[in-house]
Amino acid sequence: MHISDGVLSTTVCLGSYILSIGICSLCIKKSMKTKELPKIAMITSIFFIASLISIPLGPTSVHLILPGLVGTALGGMAFPSVLLGIILQAILFQHGGLTTIGANSLMMGLGALGAGSIFSLVKKSNNSKLIINTGAICGAMGVLIAGITLALLLTTAGEDFYGVAKVALLAHVPVIVIETIITGAAIAFLLKVKPDLIGVKIKPDETGVKVIQ
């Protein structure tokens, strides 16, 4: 879910721009490594492409947003990645809007950062089940935080938007369920195939996969 142009007041638009640029530069200062630049760009494009996957749900369909997966894969650099993804979505597809890039990256980016900080707690664990379950929770948390931030941003637009905020929050419920399962499955897959992509150091024999020699 993105906020489109014209919904938020100019003050909120500018404020969220400043806030997200601030968070972004903090993240870059704290955890940016030149070596990781291609990886961040890659996750950004996956984040972009994921929005093209839509899952039929009754009469409509929902598309993936994946803040949780971005957070688990990138940790502290998730916010800049999400910001870039939002910029690209706005410029290339006109998803969201130009004046709301700040607001949109704030909601997804905070979700991604939240998911990343939860996932960093279990990165050193050797228990693959725990990691997969935490990954699934991260998927849910990412969307939950994004949904709450979206609702809060919408309420700043005035009393008239309280109803829209409620509907938007409700619309996130099925997305939370979907992303929980998808993120969990993706983390389980990565754990088996390429654990260092999500920063997990786990021995191959503990993932339950037999190495063919």
Partner: peptide, 20 residues
């Protein structure tokens, strides 16, 4: 469907990662 998409994303990530 969801699990398949999860694996799909995982595969896409791994392939893309190696390429980048």
């Amino acid at each position: 469907t969801l699990k398949t998409y999860g694996n799909f994303l995982g595969t896409l990530l791994v392939r893309s990662f190696e390429r980048t």
